[in-house]
Design a protein around this nucleic acid. Structure first.
Lengths: 210, 210
DNA sequence: GTCTATAACGTGATAGAC
DNA sequence: GTCTATCACGTTATAGAC
């Protein structure tokens, strides 16, 4: 605390400003379409600063991408592997955490999926969770429930596709859905809030469908 | 029929070759990351030909984009507006047509969604169906079923999100899902084939969930 | 119609003054 | 640390020979 440093830009320094601007522009346009000049302008400063702080567009992108992936992971991993929560509870937690995340950063899902398409393997390598999902507590619980006849669809992958589809698609198709339903941002977000409660109910019905 | 023309490249002319190559490259990389040189090389010919036939990268892209959108539409529109098929039948038709389409062109959904993000409004204007969905026979049937107590969720938009999410997400997240489930292309496509039958069943369960 | 060579331009990155 | 000016390079597009 004490006294503020007597520098020109006190609280949010330029490095943070550039990073915030980079996140915005990269998420919105993707790596290839984003121009370093866009980012500099968005940050309200000169292009040269970007290279001064981050060396290159590529380096800056890696940073933003890593944080985006980390955002995806921190939710997933812990929930999936917790042996002390039921399958139902896990679904509730995943729906709630992801929808909250995507309401805050609506461009995140499409950004990550698009960049995986381009940079493919390199990015997927950085997702350790991806390799462990099929051994998680979640999967074991699912398979147990199948054996006990509580679930009709035997393949957990179908279930994951359904759950993630219901959660992610509205954000991927956001612009189109706003147009279809003539929704403004507030109305759209309200729908997403509803889905936090509804998805677990729907998913439970799917599990017992036949 | 008669005799073939005595030209060098008989059946598939260069224009078609370039278009096919452009579709491949644009779908895979998106507009910004795609280079005209990539397209020319993919078509097995020189860069100059591309400009000779299509004037510019932008023009060629517009063409590919338009066809991609048309692919989306021709399925949608007719099915949604047919007053002589039941709600259940419509779901079956949509699931089947879209999954067949996406198995043939797996990059299509992510391509269209990504480019809508970048080019936004301009592209959505070209989707007349988008504006008419909420007045379609499909929606009227849905609302009627809600009134009759056959459906618990009153908002058709939630239903559309769920249906499209289940259909589209596996292709959007294809690379990730292959990794998660350690699936090769054949196994992945087999899963998608299964989903053609399963999605209508699941969706029916969702409609009655409470 | 198809090619090679090159022009015209946009973008990422750096030099150097302040 | 921050700016302006500029370089270096890759990419789109075109000119012109064949």
């Amino acid at each position: 605390m004490a006294a503020k440093k007597n520098k020109q830009t006190p609280d949010f320094n330029t490095e943070q400003k550039i990073k915030a601007a980079a996140r915005l522009v990269f998420h919105k346009k993707g790596f290839a379409a984003a121009r370093t000049r866009d980012i500099a302008e968005e940050a309200g400063m000169n292009l040269a600063l970007l290279n001064y702080y981050f060396r290159s567009k590529e380096k800056l992108f890696q940073l933003i991408m890593f944080e985006a992936i980390a955002g995806f992971m921190q939710n997933m991993g812990a929930v999936f592997n917790d042996e002390n929560t039921s399958l139902e509870k896990k679904v509730e937690l995943i729906a709630e955490k992801y929808i909250d995340l995507f309401i805050m950063e609506p461009e995140l899902p499409l950004f990550v999926m698009s960049e995986i398409r381009s940079h493919g393997a390199e990015i997927l390598e950085k997702l350790p969770t991806v390799n462990t999902i099929m051994q998680s507590a979640f999967i074991k619980q699912y398979q147990k429930a199948v054996k006990e006849g509580k679930i009709t669809e035997p393949k957990p992958l179908h279930f994951i596709m359904n759950l993630m589809g219901m959660i992610v698609f509205p954000f991927i198709g956001g612009p189109m859905l706003r147009k279809v339903g003539k929704l403004n941002d507030r109305q759209f977000n309200k729908l997403m809030q509803e889905r936090k409660k509804l998805i677990p109910i729907w998913v439970k019905a799917v599990l017992k469908a036949k």
